[in-house]
């Protein structure tokens, strides 16, 4: 029983981190129809910047802020530089953003080296506590609580605020949103930057759990794409449910059947897509 509770908490921790990454990816995809394959690299960039800031200042929260800001600015730079290409065909987007992912990956390798590294947890979260009879690191529990709180906050913003309605109107019909006086270009740039900064923030938050190493960018990207496909493109609710599902399936799969962990991850994905081709919360988006 202790094994199952432990794996459940591990799965929720992975799901929490995935939610932070996938929510940005899915909103950018839904809003701008841009499949940003450099999202994983922006995640890792945040992690590395956070690592350096923590090394020099010893402050985890400063590291998180710096990681989020750097990835957000990098995302904004990419979006502003390549807007024309990014709004073109999906093929161009894939080639461009994958190319950017490799360039960022190599740049990080040159700056931070190839050895896996880890961020330290903040002091006040460095202890373990007892939950349902198992001793579990408080930092990981903090991540789970943070994901639920962030999910709720994002839901309130998305579904209940006027600004959220403005963003949704751009997802639904960007031409009409512009005709109603909405600066769709500013909405695009803001959402892209916020999505990128959330990826960077997750790189730092995940640093003490997953570590920071070259290759993690593509591992995380793959899982985030799976989350978006399961949850439905452009759906925050879908990103939340999909993240928790993928986190749990991936963790239980690796713990119980490590030799076929990719099968245990992708078999449910195929099943969901067979039953619901648009994902759990997906809908057909206008062109």
């Amino acid at each position: 029983m202790r094994f199952w509770i432990f794996q459940l908490l591990n799965g929720l921790t992975t799901g929490a981190l995935l939610f932070f990454v996938a929510s940005g990816l899915t909103v950018v995809f839904g809003l701008m129809r841009i499949l940003n394959l450099s999202h994983g690299a922006l995640f890792l960039l945040g992690g590395y910047v956070g690592l350096s800031v923590q090394h020099f200042t010893g402050n985890f929260f400063l590291a998180a802020l710096a990681g989020a800001a750097t990835s957000g600015l990098m995302g904004l730079l990419l979006q502003q530089t390549f807007t024309r290409t990014l709004l073109g065909s999906t093929f161009n987007q894939v080639l461009l953003t994958l190319g950017i992912a490799f360039i960022l990956n190599n740049g990080m390798l040159a700056i931070w080296g190839g050895l896996p590294q880890k961020l330290k947890t903040p002091d006040f979260l460095s202890e373990s506590i007892s939950v349902f009879g198992v001793t579990y690191p408080s930092y990981r529990l903090f991540l789970i609580v943070l994901a639920f709180a962030a999910g709720l906050a994002l839901w309130v913003f998305w579904e209940r605020s006027t600004l959220g309605a403005v963003v949704r109107s751009c997802v639904d019909d960007r031409e009409m949103a512009a005709a109603m006086g909405i600066r769709v270009d500013l909405v695009f740039a803001s959402v892209f930057a916020i999505g990128a900064s959330m990826a960077g923030l997750t790189g730092v938050l995940g640093g003490p759990v997953l570590g920071v190493y070259i290759g993690l960018d593509f591992e995380v990207l793959l899982l985030a794409v799976v989350v978006v496909v399961i949850g439905g493109i452009g759906s925050l609710n879908g990103a939340f449910v999909g993240s928790m599902m993928v986190g749990l399936i991936d963790t239980f799969g690796k713990a119980s059947f490590p030799e076929i962990s990719y099968f245990t991850l992708f078999a449910p994905v195929i099943l969901i897509l067979l039953l619901r081709p648009l994902g759990l919360f997906g809908r057909i988006l206008p062109e």
Binding site: R168, S169, D172, D173, M176
Partner: peptide, 11 residues
């Protein structure tokens, strides 16, 4: 009409 399907009337 081209309404925003995911917005309420009030929104």
């Amino acid at each position: 009409r081209r309404l925003f399907g995911s917005l309420t009337v009030e929104e």
